[in-house]
Design a protein around this nucleic acid. Structure first.
Lengths: 184, 184
DNA sequence: GAACGATATGCAACACGTTGCATTGCAACC
DNA sequence: GGTTGCAATGCAACGTGTTGCATATCGTTC
């Protein structure tokens, strides 16, 4: 249900086609709410039916036609309503790395260390990306207000979480390696 | 697909019935992989069909009969295989709080602050819980080895992530409040 | 001119998670 | 004796996410 609200936010920032939205969900808002183009097209259809967005067909030079969507008044109202609504119990945690770690003694510990190292590197890379985006888009965070501030805070959340995963991976790899050396 | 591996881990730690597994998924392993009893019963059926687990019907005094499941050799082999397997691209991030924050200027900022405060409190509570569990189950973390170490590291991951969310919420609430005071 | 990649939209099938409901046995409480 | 509550198992329907495929235009490259 919530993807539709992510789309509303993105379309309120700027109207666009399904394809453009899919590009945005490959980065930017997509870092915090993943979605494929199939999901997006399917949702756009439902949202048109619900009257949350309107659609203009736009013919283009040198490119296939596209359908540009923008948020209707009903859609804007619905978005505002959802933003104010207390969220459902939330955070259904599902972390397969934790499951693997917990089951490490039923598998091969060396493989688990390798897997944690892979994840460590992925989180480090993602953190690097966020820091690059921060420097590029928000060089002076202290002065931000309004929509820019909100966007910055979302990015900050991403950094905090990646930092946490990174330390966790580092600590765990160290502990597993020590354990392999002494016990096992 | 991955729930079945979480169940395998849990059943290798100790054989049990569907109901008992559902209780375990209300805490312990469930903090890192959420699952309802319907999912669990459904998965157990599939896993029996696949030959990953075996089932004994156990009659009980003063209670309904139950079906106790244990991991078969095939199941153990499959679990070990999965643990060693590099995980799929992973972490499909979906954080509705980030979406709400990003859309704050299209809703009511005061409501967003209230919502972030609610989440802040939930994360603080969860962190408290993890710290209690740590003190209860792992009073001397430095000496842990093997399976206990693995369980501790999973808990540590939970704490790191909750700490991160907590600081993020605190920072964001502060920034949003300041922004409301000066600009807007 | 064939092949490839980007733009652009979409269907169908399947896997997985959620919600709501249903049933049985027994104990305890009022 | 009826209600409540825990133990225990399960079905059906629906919503959402994933995977694989299909199609069309246009520009560039081999």
């Amino acid at each position: 249900m919530s993807l539709e609200y992510a789309i509303l936010v993105s379309l309120r920032e700027r109207a666009g086609s399904g394809y453009e939205l899919a590009r945005r969900f490959d980065k930017s808002i997509g870092y915090f709410w993943a979605a494929s183009h199939q999901q997006i097209y399917r949702s756009l259809k439902r949202m048109v039916d619900a009257g949350w967005i309107d659609c203009d067909e736009v013919a283009q030079d040198k490119r296939p036609d596209k359908k540009v969507y923008r948020v209707s008044e009903d859609g804007a109202a619905e978005l505002a309503r959802w933003i104010g609504e207390p969220a459902t119990p939330s955070s259904t945690t599902r972390n397969d790395l934790s499951v693997k770690l917990r089951g490490a003694s039923f598998g091969n510990t060396a493989e688990v260390i390798a897997e944690m190292t892979r994840h460590r590197d992925m989180h480090a890379e993602r953190l690097e990306l966020y820091r690059t985006l921060e420097q590029r888009d928000f060089p002076v965070p202290a002065r931000l207000t309004g929509r820019e501030l909100h966007q910055y805070l979302v990015l900050l959340g991403g950094m905090r979480v990646e930092e946490a995963f990174l330390s966790w991976c580092d600590e765990s790899i160290k502990a597993l390696e020590n354990d392999g050396g002494e016990a096992s």
